[in-house]
Design a protein around this nucleic acid. Sequence first.
DNA 1: GTGGGTACTCTCTATTGGGAAGTAGCCTGA
DNA 2: TCAGGCTACTTCCCAATAGAGAGTACCCAC
Lengths: 125, 125
Amino acid sequence: MTVSLRELRALPGFDDTLLTEGCPTRVVLDHVTSKWGVLVLLALSDGTHRWGELRRAVDGISEKMLAQTLRTLEGDSLVLRDAHPTIPPHVEYSLTASGRELVDRMLPLVEWIARNADRMLPAAP
Amino acid sequence: MTVSLRELRALPGFDDTLLTEGCPTRVVLDHVTSKWGVLVLLALSDGTHRWGELRRAVDGISEKMLAQTLRTLEGDSLVLRDAHPTIPPHVEYSLTASGRELVDRMLPLVEWIARNADRMLPAAP
DNA sequence: GTGGGTACTCTCTATTGGGAAGTAGCCTGA
DNA sequence: TCAGGCTACTTCCCAATAGAGAGTACCCAC
């Protein structure tokens, strides 16, 4: 198991430019770990959802940010947008195979935080 | 292994309020997955660093954001600040035991993104 | 012809982030 | 003697970004 950034950079295929500003890894990492990106991906870990469902599932997100986040994640091939040209519109969002792999690696992190968040925060009011 | 948000919420100790706005998990998650939070934690995965080293290690960070990020992560008990009251000042930053556990769960995610980022982005110029 | 349903998109304002200069006090070199 | 450097921040200002809320498109039921 990789235990540090140094080790990660030493793996075959990587070098010291990993995570420098503007490199592809940083770009995708920024999208995925953005405030709403994480929550949208988590919501989709449950399976396919429609726009309105996502809006309700991701507590606090505005319509603008939901649209923007979905477009970004779709651009990164993590989310699949399946639009049925009906009236009223019907659009379904789901994880791609890549998205599924990524979420599988995100869930342990989120689970650890969920287990430990309470004792970490300073004097929750 | 937990494979979805639904399953995570079904685990003992959790419920449907997990990840609602303002809940401790969301707060810590926001800190940890903020643009600079991830990169600072990754930099510290290599071991203890001084301020100037971190500034150079985290490509593109401003002094303002480095200070803010370090204070936030320290408040979350993820980073330890060890200041020696000398002139000129000498301050060392390292991961706490919690921080180490968290980074152990973050590295697989980052490694996966590093391996796949190139083919995910649309038409890299 | 009016209202409902869905998925956006636009506009305006509040918040956030970057850059650069300022701060503290001792120590070194000229 | 005294300017300048060392280090870890902090502050200020302005540009970029995020968010709230209203607007749009289109057809159907009433």
